[in-house]
Computed example of a mutant assay.
Amino acid sequence: MVRGKTQMKRIENATSRQVTFSKRRNGLMKKAFELSILCDAEVALIVFSPRGRLYEFASSSIQETIERYRSHSRINNTQTLSESAENTQHLKEEAENMMKRIDLLETSKRKLLGEGLGTCSIEELQKIEQQLERSITKIRAKKTQVFREQIGHLKEKEKTLIAENVMLSEKYDKYSSQQAKKGDRKNIAEGEAFAASSDVETELFIGLPETRTRISPSLRTN
């Protein structure tokens, strides 16, 4: 018979709850005993039933185990409190150092902007001037670099546009040549047609139908 999975919630039936408590309690006691024997561990187990009845197991003495637990807890709590106090003090010192650095940076920023220079000595003013000169040199170098990069991009774009212009010019020249050839062929054809039509003889007669005479083409042209 397959054992179903037990649902982890309070058993509503009192009889079933008591039976389950007895079985699980005995199994827990057995596991505690096995752990103490197999692993040579100091084990103490305290269980109160729903009705308040006490069940306990100890591999040596339950009172000694409880005292050992309390002593261990006090040591750990003391260490934890000491470490917490040290961490808090360290954080306070770091916060103070950060505030001092922020104040120094704010003061230096105001001086670089030309503010609060009344209390500065000659040496401090010279240092500020040198710092500004170094900053200006870096800014100018960066600006020159940016200009050069932009010029390079524009030159590359110019080369691309020139290549495209050459390609379009070649296409236009080829197209114009084709159109010129088509025009020449059309003119030749029209000339040939005109020449052919000029060779056609036409008859011209003068006078009444009964007495009209034919005029030769040579006379007409004269």
Rank of each mutant, 00 (worst) to 15 (best):
M1Y: 10
M1G: 12
K5N: 11
S16H: 12
R17N: 05
R17V: 00
Q18V: 07
T20K: 13
T20W: 07
K31D: 14
F33Q: 15
I37C: 05
L38M: 07
A41G: 00
V43H: 02
A44T: 03
L45H: 03
L45Q: 03
F48Q: 08
R53D: 06
Y55S: 12
A58F: 02
S59Q: 01
Q63A: 06
E64I: 06
R68S: 13
R68V: 01
N76P: 00
E86D: 13
N87Y: 07
T88Q: 10
K92H: 13
K92D: 15
E93V: 02
E96H: 11
N97F: 14
K100A: 06
R101K: 09
D103G: 05
L104Y: 13
R110C: 02
L113C: 09
G116A: 02
L117W: 02
L117Y: 01
L117N: 05
G118V: 06
E123A: 15
E123M: 13
E124D: 13
E124M: 05
L125F: 03
I128G: 02
Q131G: 10
L132F: 02
R134P: 00
S135D: 08
T137I: 05
I139G: 02
I139N: 04
R140A: 02
K142Q: 14
K143T: 08
K143D: 08
V146Y: 07
V146G: 01
R148C: 05
I151C: 07
H153E: 06
L154H: 05
L154I: 05
L154T: 05
K155E: 07
T160H: 15
L161Q: 15
A163C: 07
N165S: 14
L168D: 04
L168Q: 10
S169M: 07
E170Y: 00
D173N: 05
Q178F: 04
Q179L: 09
Q179S: 04
A180K: 05
A180Y: 06
K182R: 12
G183E: 14
G183V: 12
D184E: 12
E190W: 13
E192R: 15
S197P: 02
S197C: 11
D199C: 12
E201L: 15
T211H: 01
T213N: 04
T221V: 11
